[in-house]
Computed example of a mutant assay.
Amino acid sequence: MQDRIDSGITVSITTLTVAQVAERIDLQAEVRDELQRIDESGETLTDEGKEAVRGLADPQQCCESWTSLKTVLGDDPDGWHMLYWMLFAAGQYTFPEYCRIGIPDNVFDATMACFTRFIGEHRVSYGRYGFDRDFWTYRQLSARLFRLGELEFELAEGDNVPAVAGTPRVVNMHIPSDARIDPDHCDQSIARSRSFFARFFPDWVGLPYMCESWLLSPALEQLLPENSHILGFQHRFAILETNPDASDWREWVFQRSSAPLEDLPERTSLQRNMKQFLLSGGKVGTGTGRLR
């Protein structure tokens, strides 16, 4: 939060600079340097671009605004310009909205830390930092997806609602790659979400909690021990639909490896078991479930 003095009156301005957002979410030093170079270059946007950045924080326009901004920015091979303007939107538009609603700063910090996590995941997959999750992060910027403890919870409607939900609005649950999904942490996160929505978004109380993930694939019963935290998480849901052909497992189990099945890594027991399962003709895919 910054202060401005107008005519002798101190006015609180609930905005953050790109550098301040980067510091709050502990963005990697090398990436901060890239953002600083963009900042010092004096990069500006067309009116269309400025409107698109502002629209990232609007739940009704965020997806369209992301598409528009991507077109305006053009060639951006490492994603740094998109990252810069998304963090600009986070500080100038999303943070003030959190303040208006009364959502605590620590929820903002935890939610926006998705940028740091995604950039770290990019390095694990490709050996260098980069940002390529802009197709997803407008959800966080529009104050519709929040990290509450270990899990993320999204106020979803329209196309973001799984067809099997049978209702126009749901709370979608997402599992960050660094989440601890043991029973205690999951219980705490879910309980926190219910309190959070009751306080800040009461119109969403009582709606179904849905999840679509490779973690809900029925095939995992054959690949993991009974006491697995993954299976424990899966058993919280009534599985309503499966998609055995989805390839999400490549991203989350094998760090986006596009290698042929026989060349997939075997560093963990899950990788080893899944690789053998796939080589024998099995399919992992995803499952979609409703929280019991």
Score class of each variant (00 low, 15 high):
L261C: 05
L264R: 03
G79M: 04
C211H: 10
H229L: 05
V164I: 08
D47W: 12
R144S: 15
D76N: 05
A22K: 03
E212A: 13
I103S: 00
R117S: 12
W252F: 06
E226G: 02
R24S: 00
A113G: 14
G149F: 01
R24H: 10
G55W: 00
L151I: 01
S125E: 13
G49N: 14
F131G: 11
D6S: 13
Q36V: 15
V161F: 05
P96Y: 07
G232A: 02
S68E: 12
I230H: 01
M274F: 13
Q276C: 15
F153N: 09
E251C: 12
L223G: 04
Y138N: 07
E64L: 13
Y209A: 00
V164E: 14
H235A: 12
H174A: 10
T71M: 10
G287A: 03
L215R: 07
S213I: 00
R272M: 15
N172T: 10
Q2H: 06
S177Y: 14
Q2S: 09
M112K: 08
S257P: 01
A29N: 12
S257D: 01
R192E: 09
M1P: 03
D203R: 07
S125H: 11
G55N: 07
N243G: 03
V107C: 10
T14G: 11
I5K: 13
L278W: 14
S189L: 01
R37L: 12
N243Y: 04
N273P: 07
Q140V: 10
D75C: 04
G166Y: 05
A90F: 00
G42E: 02
E226N: 13
F95C: 03
I175A: 07
D47M: 06
G42I: 01
P208L: 06
A89S: 08
Q234S: 11
T67P: 09
R32E: 15
R290N: 04
H229E: 05
I190Q: 07
E266S: 10
G282H: 03
R192T: 11
R267A: 11
E150N: 02
R169W: 07
V53T: 03
H122Q: 14
G102S: 04
F200E: 00
L73K: 06
G206C: 05
Q20E: 15
L279F: 08
A156Y: 14
H235E: 07
L145D: 07
G127H: 04
Y138T: 12
A89R: 03
L270W: 01
I230W: 06
G55F: 00
S142E: 01
F233H: 01
A113K: 15
L224M: 02
F201C: 06
I101E: 02
R272E: 13
G285W: 04
F131I: 02
L56D: 00
L224C: 04
G232N: 02
P202L: 05
Q20T: 09
Q276V: 13
F277T: 07
D3P: 04
P183N: 12
C62F: 09
T268M: 06
